[in-house]
Design a binder for these strands. Structure first.
Lengths: 197, 197
DNA sequence: TGTCAACTTTACACTGTGTCAAGTTGATGC
DNA sequence: GCATCAACTTGACACAGTGTAAAGTTGACA
């Protein structure tokens, strides 16, 4: 028993789970994570009460590793609405690949109310970002006239969903660059009063 | 034992499963379907080899009840590209509510390769419809110049995904009418060379 | 009357999650 | 040096849901 530091073990579990989820191919059972982290399956339950909590902890771990606030800083700093929209799409769209694996696992646990709530919270956070961008657009008078701010927020939020990223990048074989480019262009055409390329 | 006709029992199973999936609230186990159809759980396996095959049979049943070909006739009959796009969105978008329940169940069975393949097939069929509409647009010269036919097909396909419908109608509380209206408008702005309302 | 097909009941194997209890082991304090 | 404690181990078990197997019931039909 080399490393007996509980914090070490915890992060090793989280990193292992992240890696396994990211690789995506399989189902990722508790025993897989335990084996990957080099501990017994039961030891997982010394660190996390159940699978849902473990997955939720993984998302928080990914967030802290990636420093979400820093990623979003350019968007918050943007002065013009269009700029804010573009930087937000770049920030969130660039973050999706990181959380894609955990997203699949969490959505597959629809049965568990805790897991559902955790994923829902994250999506609501994204929605707030969308709302802020749309509000900035509206303030500049750049929002398409026949769209409510509410409706525009919903549309942008849906457009930027992880599922859409999965479809385009994984199913359609788009590169991450192509995804960002086309989604940004689509948002322009769909949301702005007059589209400027 | 009143109705001993196997075909009757089969359709009763399919209708029951459809109804239960549509209601959406719960997990819909084999025993739920059996109870709903008024037979024993084991009798299900006299009609379907496993859960995946049953779910697939439900989708086929829904298709036959709803007569998909008739729904798509207006789209195929459309002469101009824009008209074809609009009628296709109306047809498919109007069909989504019917298959929404089974869609959730089938996607939740990602583990099962048969279920995955079945859902994939259906999505590819939708994609073909998207491709036909895009091709018609391109032929008319109405497609946005900076879009490949391929890319435009991908975008339309993603836009019309069941997941996006779920988000907008279920999560955001849009009416089916609002969904069809806004999605059609979005497709116009996103895909057409110059948007005409 | 006998046979067959649809269906029933009971029982069990398998997988994956989560719980419980009784060890083992290494660091730390005294 | 010795006890203690926390992290971890092994092994067993309950539970849910799917799928399999086997033996019995029942109604239709020839």
């Amino acid at each position: 028993m080399m490393s007996r530091n509980p914090a070490d073990t915890r992060t090793r579990i989280l990193e292992t789970a992240w890696k396994l989820l990211e690789s995506g191919d399989k189902a990722v059972r508790m025993s897989d994570i335990a084996k990957g982290a080099g501990i017994s399956r039961q030891a997982l339950y010394l660190h996390f009460p159940n699978r849902a909590e473990l997955l939720i902890a993984v998302t928080r771990h990914i967030d802290s590793v990636n420093d979400v606030d820093t990623r979003l800083a350019p968007s918050r700093a943007a002065t013009r609405g269009v700029e804010r929209l573009e930087t937000f799409i770049a920030a969130w769209g660039g973050y999706i690949p990181q959380i894609h694996g955990i997203s699949v696992a969490l959505r597959a646990m629809q049965g568990d109310p805790e897991a559902a709530a955790a994923w829902d919270d994250r999506m609501q956070a994204v929605r707030h970002g969308c709302a802020a961008a749309i509000r900035a657009l509206a303030t500049d008078g750049d929002l398409r006239e026949d769209l409510t701010e509410e409706a525009a927020t919903d549309l942008l939020w849906v457009l930027l969903s992880v599922e859409n990223w999965e479809r385009l990048v994984r199913d359609c074989g788009w590169s991450q660059d192509a995804y960002l480019r086309e989604v940004t262009a689509l948002a322009h055409h769909a949301l702005l009063a007059q589209s400027r390329s």
